[in-house]
Design a protein around this nucleic acid. Structure first.
Lengths: 249, 249
DNA sequence: AATTTCACCGATAGTACTATCGGTGAAATT
DNA sequence: AATTTCACCGATAGTACTATCGGTGAAATT
């Protein structure tokens, strides 16, 4: 309200941030097609032509947005994994592995929404970013599974881990969006479903990789201090008529 | 090559179809942002202004496209379920429930791609269509699970079935796209992963719903002739430390 | 105090697109 | 054979946007 003794570059930086903010809001509300220098500049409170004082063109603003958004998403994910590792017991910990990403998504849904849209849109300037982010999440998740003891020695197992990670990530995104759309009011329920999905897939991985290399002990090169690793998988390799029976070409 | 004795309305219908074809191709290759009456008309071999002989505006063409595409997708899905029911043994049948949708998607990837893009894009004319299609698939899948004996009596179970269906569908789409991007060359492997994911989730559903209503026999109102229903779930309600332990509000 | 810098402005040329309108010739109808 | 219909055409007015350019005044520098 009182004095705003801003230096010139501070003021510039402030408008720059206002532009980015405005772009993010418009992107979320109207989509990439609704984005224009006119709208962004107006929303930020400057003339359309002044847009170019801050960015070469809209493409550049989007690139900056992608960088920052990616950073934010990744930070949220790191945080999630960290918190999950801190959980009191292994049961809560495993559930948190799914609940925390859900919560993180719901805190900044616009980032995921924008990413989901751009992922398969060839006309999107954010496509490369979206593809890279999705890949990073997938690899991160797959690495996490590997650290849990589901080692992937041969090509096929590695691919399986990747598929599980990608599938679970897709399901996580879908349930988070469903929550935001009001269909699944309780995030804990969603986390339970994801936990169950994950367990099922990992059980498959366990049993067949045990068949492929029966003498191997997956704990060997696992992450430190993960004693109980996967409380589930009771009957283990016993799942009777599982897909494992097939011996493809 | 020889004579093309087309009646006037036949010729008109032909150009109309060419317009739709062209729009679909451009939509897939360049996205909704790349679509224009200029491009579509040119690709169909007519003048831009003649576009309006066939459609009121681009919006209308997209609506027609959505209707036809939705019909096609749904037909493919019905076909998939039908084939799955025809499979020789229950094992193959269950796997086919996942393999066939994957194959169907890969036969016409542009339809899914377009749908995935529009799903969360507020600027898309196809958004309503995409949302409706996704809901239809989810409900269809959930109904399928219910028919398998996973009855959903109370609100919570119904929601769980829906979440599983939505999660599995999202994973199916993700793996199909991954296949098309060359990451998962073998669709059978992807089907195995989906089967495993599904089994895990259904095991959860089984065990907790058995706890909630222990005397109930789910076969009662299930689809006819599904004797073996879910070969898996061996230890059944025994899964030791599953999420079922939690009794949230 | 004089000078320079620069964030911002309004005006505007250029681009891409939509949607209408009058005209044309062959198909369809009479 | 005469007339009508209509799928298609080219031209064009209108809209929305991008990106540049010269100008301005306050901040920053000298």
């Amino acid at each position: 309200m009182t004095g705003t003794p801003l230096t010139r570059s501070e003021a510039k930086d402030l408008t720059r941030r206002r532009l980015i903010r405005a772009a993010l809001a418009i992107l979320d509300e109207e989509g990439e097609a609704g984005l224009s220098t006119v709208k962004v500049a107006k929303a930020a409170g400057i003339a359309q032509s002044s847009f170019y004082v801050h960015f070469k063109d809209m493409q550049e603003l989007l690139r900056v947005l992608a960088d920052e958004g990616g950073e934010q998403l990744f930070a949220a994910m790191r945080e999630a994994r960290r918190k999950a590792r801190e959980a009191p017991d292994d049961l809560e910990r495993h559930r948190d592995t799914f609940r925390i990403p859900l919560v993180a998504i719901c805190r900044h849904p616009e980032l995921l929404r924008i990413q989901l849209r751009a992922r398969y849109d060839p006309s999107s300037s954010l496509r490369d970013f979206a593809v890279a982010t999705a890949a990073a999440h997938r690899d991160h998740h797959a690495a996490d599974l590997a650290a849990l003891g589901y080692t992937a020695d041969d090509e096929r197992d590695r691919r399986r881990l990747e598929m599980i990670a990608e599938g679970i990530n897709a399901a996580t995104n879908a349930l988070a969006m469903g929550h935001l759309e009001g269909r699944y009011p309780d995030l804990d329920e969603a986390a339970d479903i994801l936990t169950a999905l994950s367990r099922g897939a990992l059980r498959l991985l366990r049993s067949t990789s045990a068949k492929a290399a029966p003498t191997e002990r997956p704990q060997d090169e696992a992450a430190p201090g993960d004693g109980a690793q996967e409380a589930a998988a009771p009957g283990d390799g016993a799942a009777p008529g599982d897909g494992a029976a097939r011996g493809g070409p």
